[in-house]
């Protein structure tokens, strides 16, 4: 059903001067999905996510969030979306709490208690009054996640949300994702280069390699026929090898890295 599609990416192409970029990426995220966008560093995951959240524009293609075009109808498109791209920089001269208050002010009707709720949710309640510049890397990442959560979004676009976190922090974020998906039916579009992390929490996976979406489907669909002991890791390695072999047999062309 079309009404269930919260993120609709069609034919996205973007090339940078260094010839990196993405080529013809098409994918859909449905309500309730935890969609894992997987690929090695430099595959183009962040580019897709930046385009999906309106930070950069594609050369070709379109992005619709809840049916709204992200370029033409930005405010309604983003009103139900929370975003964290890369490290999610905070204003270091402001306290963690003040950073969240700035974000919350841009969502009319949000209860005043929401900032406290998200501080609690990411485990920063005790440090809310400290300046963000004094936070550790892990605390900054938690603050950035709190910033993405503050509006109670229906869709969360999270780019490498466990970067900079220690093992305990990674587990907490994983549990937070599961909890929000279960209790609030929050939909996730999240990227990572950590395959085990993806395997543990995602129900759908898209594999990006050198700017192209090479495979997409539910975990079951992807691993079907790969044998009982197969994992996403072995599946991924097989797919990458197959792609490389296919590329070696193709005539020289413009390559997207």
């Amino acid at each position: 059903m079309n009404g269930d599609i919260v993120l609709d990416i069609q034919g996205l192409t973007k090339s940078y001067r260094n010839r990196r970029g993405i080529e013809n990426v098409t994918l859909q995220v449905r309500r309730g999905d935890i969609y894992g966008f997987f690929g090695p560093n430099g595959a183009g995951k962040t580019t897709v996510m930046k385009i999906a959240s309106g930070l950069i524009r594609a050369d070709r293609g379109s992005v619709r969030l809840f049916g709204y075009d992200v370029n033409e109808q930005y405010e309604p498109a983003m009103s139900r979306v929370g975003v964290l791209i890369e490290k999610g920089e905070a204003f270091e001269y402001l306290s963690g709490r003040r950073n969240l208050e700035l974000a919350a002010r841009l969502y009319p009707g949000l209860p005043k208690t929401r900032v406290d709720e998200v501080l609690e949710l990411v485990g920063l309640s005790k440090h809310g009054k400290e300046k963000a510049g004094h936070y550790s890397l892990g605390m900054k990442m938690r603050l950035a996640i709190a910033g993405a959560l503050v509006s109670k979004p229906e869709l969360l676009i999270l780019d490498e949300p466990t970067n900079g976190l220690d093992i305990e922090g990674m587990v907490e974020i994983r549990e937070l994702v599961r909890k929000l998906a279960r209790e609030e039916r929050t939909t996730f579009f999240l990227s990572s280069h950590l395959i085990s992390e993806m395997e543990m929490i995602c129900n759908r996976i898209g594999i990006l390699h050198e700017g192209k979406l090479i495979r997409e489907g539910s975990m079951g669909e992807l691993l079907q026929g790969s044998g009982p002991s197969s994992s996403l890791e072995t599946y991924f390695i097989e797919q990458i090898r197959a792609e490389r072999e296919a590329a070696d047999h193709e005539p020289a062309n413009v390559r997207y890295h």
Binding site: S53, L55, G88, E89, F91, A144
Partner: peptide, 15 residues
């Protein structure tokens, strides 16, 4: 430069 602008631009407010 420090990319803090991103935290403003991803909110539902036109540029």
């Amino acid at each position: 430069g420090d990319r803090t602008i991103r935290s403003v631009l991803v909110r539902p407010v036109n540029r």
